[in-house]
């Protein structure tokens, strides 16, 4: 499917923004300027950006513990994301959520989730709402390969297919769940095979090729909007960095040859798109550099915004517990 130059440039910008946001989050965490855990999405950016490029603003998503990329891809404000990481009152959750609980219901981002597979039933609920509203909205449900071990994964695939819910099940198979390789925890390594078992199409896609992900998601979204039900999109990708850090990044435990195989301009989702766009004459190196510079400026501004925001007032501890 052919995209306009401005669409392609926006896809590139979002890939870079996610990359730089998470690299910055790591540095901020090491410097103890932000709190909690950081789960970097570095290397997997093409999944969120590709899928969200196929969605409309009114479509919804659910996310995971590794959720910064999903937020940015869906159009979240990085100032408010950063303020949340800093635990400040102008954060998306007024400092009550932190990295693993960022949500922006106004843009259809129904929440990161600290529980593996925990967002999957919620995504089905959003898709049921969309089906009842009958306004052609879809929901994209992001989850890791680790989630396939959970009952919620199997329950939701079955129900969504049974009810033909307008849903995209987006599996981010980065080959590991924390320190454990997929083959070490799954009897059947191929996640795509769950799709036929639950009566839905399953499509494996190169998760580091943002345009391939986008095309696959667009087709699945179209199918969902037609009322033909969910699709399992199995995105094969790789986590470039560690699973999670608190005070310091943990040591690498994955084999060298695997790490080497995923390194290189032709594997990295950003350089890959960059080479494609420049090679095809769509953009110039200078234009892409301008985008990178703008992203850096935006992130500097986000940190400034976050640091200028006050901490929440302890007197507001009980605010937001119950709706009126």
């Amino acid at each position: 499917m052919s995209l306009t130059k401005s669409e392609l440039v926006e896809i590139f910008r979002k890939l870079v923004l996610i990359r730089e946001f998470d690299l910055l989050a790591i540095e901020l965490r090491k410097a103890k300027r932000i709190y909690g855990a950081v789960h970097p999405y570095v290397g997997e950016e093409a999944v969120a950006v590709g899928v969200c490029a196929a969605l409309r603003p009114t479509d919804r998503i659910t996310s995971t513990h590794r959720g910064h990329g999903h937020c940015i891809a869906k159009g979240a404000d990085i100032n408010r994301m950063m303020a949340e990481l800093f635990g400040r009152v102008d954060g998306y959750c007024k400092g009550k959520g932190g990295s693993m609980h960022i949500a922006d219901f106004a843009i259809g981002m129904l929440g990161a989730n600290g529980i593996v597979a925990g967002g999957m039933p919620i995504a089905c609920g959003a898709a049921l709402a969309a089906q009842l509203e009958d306004a052609g909205k879809v929901t994209a449900c992001f989850f890791g390969d680790g989630a396939t071990g959970e009952g919620e994964f199997h329950e939701t695939l079955n129900i969504a297919s049974l009810w033909k819910l307008p849903l995209l099940f987006v599996c981010e198979n980065n080959r590991y769940g924390a320190g454990n390789a997929v083959e070490s925890v799954r009897a059947q390594a191929d996640i795509t095979l769950h799709a036929p078992a639950y009566g839905m199409p399953g499509i494996a896609v190169d998760g580091n090729d943002v345009l391939a992900v986008r095309d696959t998601a667009a087709e699945a979204a179209e199918r969902a909007r037609r009322g033909d039900g969910p699709t399992l999109i199995h995105c094969k990708t790789f986590r470039s960095l560690f699973h999670a850090m608190r005070d310091v990044p943990p040591p690498e435990t994955r084999p060298d040859d695997l790490l080497a195989a995923w390194r290189g301009r032709d594997r990295d989702p950003i350089t890959r798109l960059e080479d494609h766009l420049i090679g095809g004459g769509t953009v110039t190196t200078a234009e892409l550099q301008q985008i990178r510079d703008a992203v850096k400026r935006d992130l500097d501004a986000a940190v400034a915004f976050a640091e200028a925001s006050p901490y929440p007032d302890p007197n507001d501890l009980l605010v937001d517990m119950f709706a009126e």
Binding site: F105, A123, C124, A126, A129, N158, I159, L162
Partner: peptide, 18 residues
């Protein structure tokens, strides 16, 4: 279906969606 985790969360997600 007899999928309590799924339909408990479906109720929640549909509630958050109007």
């Amino acid at each position: 279906p007899i999928s309590e985790a799924a339909f408990t969360g479906i109720g929640l997600g549909a509630a958050g969606s109007g």
